[in-house]
Structure formats: structure tokens, C-alpha cells
Simulated assay, not measured.
Amino acid sequence: MRRHTIAPRPGWQQIVEEQGLIYPLTRYPDDSLRPYWDESAYYAFTLPEVEALEEVVEELHAMCLAAAAFIVEKDRFHDLGLTDPRQVELVAESWRRRAELPSLYGRFDLRYDGSGPARLLEYNADTPTSLVEAASPQWFWMEDRFPGADQWNSLHERLVAAWKNQSALLPPGPVYFAHSVADKLGEDLMTVAYLRETAEQAGLETEAIAMEDIGWDPLSGRFVDLGLKFVRSCFKLYPWEWLATDRFSGHVQDTLDNGGGTGSTLWIEPAWKMLLSNKALLAILWELYPGHPNLLPAYLDGPRELATTTGWVAKPLLGREGAGVTVHEAGTPVPVRAPEAEACCYQALAPLPEFDGNRVVLGAWVVEDEAAGLGIRESAGLVTDEYARFLPHVIL
């Protein structure tokens, strides 16, 4: 694993925008615009490195599924902050019927520096983004810059194949692809548009819709679109913890198609993905696989020995893009958490590796149950936040 600098292609911004990355720049607090898609550098890997990382990702994915089964079988939902009995049953039933429910993709965030074992930082298996740039623009960048080279990137082919493989699980009618209009950057819009394109290439009928335009028809007791057509299946880039608690949550639970054929709306990703996109999963994994070389110690009741050994990172159970994450060096006092404070997972501090002054995290993709690709983000600080940059990679 090496970082190399390179001159950006002339007209790079227009190139990536035409390839679907309509958010190539990030606006900073000082109102300046700086590249989010950053092709002034790239990362190079060897094929043995990538093959080893693929094995790690698929092992971690299998471990996460085992942890999900453990949570359901041992009724450990309270560890995830799931205390509403109806919501618990929704997730548990979804897990029990998982073979009947379409499930598409997820993204592992890994700490890796090319020398030691990759370590799991978190798993977003419900609403992962940075997909468009990982699947398309970085592939075309490689073809422009390194013709004949390779890349850890079979995302597009695997997504199309996944829709084909799981098409029999879908009810009749179009698959709706929904994003929230609250997304001002266009990232959610383009992620959903890209996934819709992969579904169409798999031969599925599709429709685009905003989450805010999905309505409830009290006469039929069904979710409908603006034309009052039933929404029988819907891929939503909208977290389950919102869907299960917002204004229409009661209707979601009343009409949920959990694979049993009794409901009216099949949501993709399925509700059991709530078990994997919750940071409590990190502590459950450490409980089940203590000392595993690809895990970091993690706890739910406090930092324990991490307070005096490695230091720790406190992560809200449902945080995204680094929101609410705090970093604590070893030997610093452990803050007293107020009773009303948001629950956290306490994970060992493993500072992101530094390359040329940049902190790097690997985003390793899983489609169905197989490793499918890599996206790399860099940041200036220890926490990868909304100001991170995406850099392409190549196998040399």
C-alpha cells in the first residue's frame, strides 16, 4: 500500500460530474470549495494485499451475521437501544425470514496501513454512501491513467447480479427507489439513481420517488406514490431507525412485508440490517471473538482498561460521518455520562495511519455476501468526517 502524487486530468471536474459524481467539491466552514474527489494522488496496492483484504472482509461479514444471530437468539436488543417491543419483534421477524428478503450491500470501514492486520472500525450495512465514486469514476480514472492495470472493483457487475439473483423475492410491480429531499448535496440522490440503474440493467421495472412523496392511503391501508399507485417494494436510502420511529412508523409496522406475504410493502434494505448498522455491534463482536486480530476492543458500559492502555473513541450507537465521535487519549479522565446522554460504544483508539500528512480509512464493500470493491477516504484529523476526500486506487 503506497500513496503516490499525480497531476489531475485536465477538466477532471466535468469528467466525474458526467460520470454521476455531481458533488465533486466540498464547501468548508470558511466558505471555500475544495475537492471531495481528489485525483491529485492515488493509492497503489499489490494483488496479494487485495486478496488478503478480500478474505478479511468476507470473514468480518460472516462474523457480523453471527453476531446478529446472537443478538436475536439471546434477546440482546437492549444493547442496541431497541426497547420498544413492537420494534424488537419487527427486527427479530425480519432476521428469521432473512432468506426471503432482498438484501443488497454494505460498507466496512477499516484501519489498514499495508503492514499489520486490517482492523474493523465500523460497519454500515443499511444506508452506506460513497458508492457512486467507488463504482464508476475511479474505474474510469484508472482506465485513463493506467490502461491495462486493475482495481479492486467489481461493484457494478455484482450489484447487477444481486438484483437478478434476488428478483424472485420481489413482489409484482416496479421497485421504487427513494431518497430524502433533505439531502442538499445530491449524494443520496445519485446513490439511489445509480442503484436504480443497476436494477434496470438486471431487467427490473423501477420508479424514482422522494421519501417525502410516499403517502399513506387510509382507504386501502397502503403506502402509495403521487399517482396513488401502491408501493409494493422500495429501496430506501433512509435509515431504519428513522423509518421505524417517524410519523408513519405505525403504518410501516402494520404493512411490513417481512417475506411472509402478509404485508403490503417490502423495504430494501430489510429491517434486520438495524442489527449491523448499530455501533453496539462492535462490542458484541468483541464479546464473541475476543482478541481477534481484525477487531478492536469495544465495550458498551465504559472504556474499561482502554482508559489506561490504548485510549478510546466514544461513538454514538447511531452516528454517521463522524458526528458525535470523541477521541480520548490514555490517562485522560473518563467523562461522567449524564443519564439522558446518547448511548455510546467505547472502542480502542487506533489512530488512522498517516500517508504524506493525511489520515486514511479504507471503505471495503460487500455485495450480497462477497467482497466487491474498495473506496478510500482521507481526512486531516483522527475522525473521518464530512470534509474527507475520496482518492482513487489501482492494483500495480
Results as ranks from 00 to 15, higher is better:
residue 2 R to E: 13
residue 7 A to C: 06
residue 16 V to Q: 02
residue 16 V to D: 03
residue 20 G to D: 03
residue 23 Y to E: 03
residue 23 Y to C: 02
residue 23 Y to D: 12
residue 23 Y to K: 03
residue 24 P to E: 08
residue 29 P to H: 04
residue 33 L to I: 00
residue 35 P to K: 01
residue 36 Y to A: 00
residue 37 W to F: 14
residue 40 S to T: 13
residue 42 Y to S: 03
residue 45 F to T: 01
residue 45 F to L: 12
residue 46 T to D: 13
residue 47 L to E: 14
residue 47 L to S: 09
residue 48 P to M: 06
residue 49 E to P: 00
residue 57 V to N: 06
residue 61 H to F: 15
residue 62 A to I: 07
residue 63 M to A: 06
residue 63 M to V: 04
residue 80 L to P: 02
residue 86 R to Y: 10
residue 87 Q to R: 12
residue 87 Q to I: 05
residue 88 V to W: 09
residue 89 E to D: 13
residue 91 V to L: 10
residue 94 S to E: 08
residue 95 W to I: 00
residue 97 R to E: 08
residue 97 R to W: 10
residue 101 L to T: 01
residue 102 P to D: 07
residue 111 R to D: 09
residue 123 Y to K: 10
residue 124 N to L: 09
residue 125 A to S: 13
residue 125 A to P: 01
residue 127 T to Q: 05
residue 130 S to N: 15
residue 133 E to G: 04
residue 133 E to F: 03
residue 135 A to F: 14
residue 146 F to I: 01
residue 153 N to E: 11
residue 158 R to Q: 13
residue 159 L to D: 00
residue 162 A to C: 09
residue 164 K to N: 07
residue 165 N to Y: 09
residue 166 Q to G: 04
residue 167 S to R: 10
residue 170 L to P: 06
residue 173 G to E: 08
residue 178 A to M: 06
residue 182 A to P: 02
residue 187 E to R: 03
residue 188 D to Y: 01
residue 190 M to W: 15
residue 191 T to H: 11
residue 201 Q to P: 01
residue 208 A to M: 14
residue 208 A to T: 04
residue 214 I to T: 07
residue 217 D to T: 05
residue 220 S to G: 11
residue 229 K to W: 15
residue 229 K to N: 15
residue 231 V to D: 13
residue 238 Y to P: 05
residue 238 Y to G: 02
residue 255 T to I: 10
residue 258 N to Q: 13
residue 266 L to W: 04
residue 269 E to G: 06
residue 269 E to M: 08
residue 270 P to S: 07
residue 277 S to V: 02
residue 280 A to G: 11
residue 283 A to K: 05
residue 286 W to F: 15
residue 287 E to N: 13
residue 288 L to T: 02
residue 294 N to H: 15
residue 303 P to K: 12
residue 306 L to V: 03
residue 309 T to V: 11
residue 309 T to N: 09
residue 311 G to E: 11
residue 311 G to F: 11
residue 315 K to D: 04
residue 317 L to N: 00
residue 328 H to R: 11
residue 331 G to E: 09
residue 332 T to N: 12
residue 339 P to K: 10
residue 346 Y to N: 01
residue 346 Y to Q: 04
residue 347 Q to E: 01
residue 349 L to W: 08
residue 353 P to F: 03
residue 354 E to S: 08
residue 355 F to H: 08
residue 355 F to T: 00
residue 361 V to Q: 11
residue 361 V to N: 02
residue 363 G to Y: 03
residue 369 D to V: 06
residue 371 A to K: 01
residue 371 A to W: 13
residue 376 I to M: 12
residue 377 R to K: 08
residue 378 E to V: 08
residue 380 A to P: 03
residue 381 G to P: 02
residue 384 T to S: 15
residue 385 D to I: 07
residue 387 Y to S: 11
residue 387 Y to N: 11
residue 391 L to T: 00
residue 392 P to M: 04
residue 395 I to T: 10
residue 396 L to Y: 09
